[in-house]
């Protein structure tokens, strides 16, 4: 395993992770809900009255982040080379998979691991392994 030091960003990533952990902590303590993005969006896809407002407020905050960040610093680059048919397939898999699997990188990978959930540990190991296999097949075969 060779670490590519030209792209590795340990401090930024650790600091960003701490902010994500802070937001997830606030969500559970203040609102009593898991800050899992797929779950929060999923609850809007089939909306239940009275349950919509906190989801929209949180997502509006999330969407405001790049707009505010851009006022004080340059946004990190977005390098997207995936052709659109692949984006469609990937989007379908991510959307359906996260809902059937009851979580994504934030719900399982952050909140689930932080509360010591065996289900989340299994889910995280599975989606990381699956992702690594896909990247291996695309890059090295």
């Amino acid at each position: 395993m060779l670490i590519d030091t030209t792209v590795f960003t340990p401090w930024r990533s650790l600091a960003g992770g701490a902010l994500i952990g802070l937001a997830a902590s606030g969500m559970i303590l203040v609102n009593g809900r898991i800050a899992g993005i797929s779950g929060i969006i999923g609850g809007l896809v089939r909306a239940v009255p009275l349950d919509v407002r906190w989801r929209l407020a949180f997502l509006t905050g999330l969407l405001s982040a790049p707009l505010l960040y851009r006022q004080v610093a340059v946004l990190p680059p977005l390098q997207i080379a995936t052709p659109w048919p692949m984006l469609v397939v990937a989007g379908l898999l991510v959307g359906a998979g996260a809902r059937f699997g009851a979580g994504c990188t934030s719900g399982h990978g952050v909140c689930g691991l932080a509360r010591g959930s065996p289900r989340s540990l299994v889910a995280t190991l599975i989606f990381m392994t699956a992702g690594a296999v896909v990247v291996y097949l695309q890059r090295h075969l």
Binding site: I41, L59, L62, L87, A90, V94, C104, F127, A130
Partner: peptide, 25 residues
């Protein structure tokens, strides 16, 4: 359901490099 869902999620994540939070941003 957990296993298959997470498997599908991981495949999609590996194909596009996007998951629900970052893609909104």
């Amino acid at each position: 359901r957990l296993v298959c869902g997470s498997l599908a999620f991981g495949v999609g994540w590996g194909l596009a490099g996007f998951c629900p939070g970052p893609v909104l941003i």
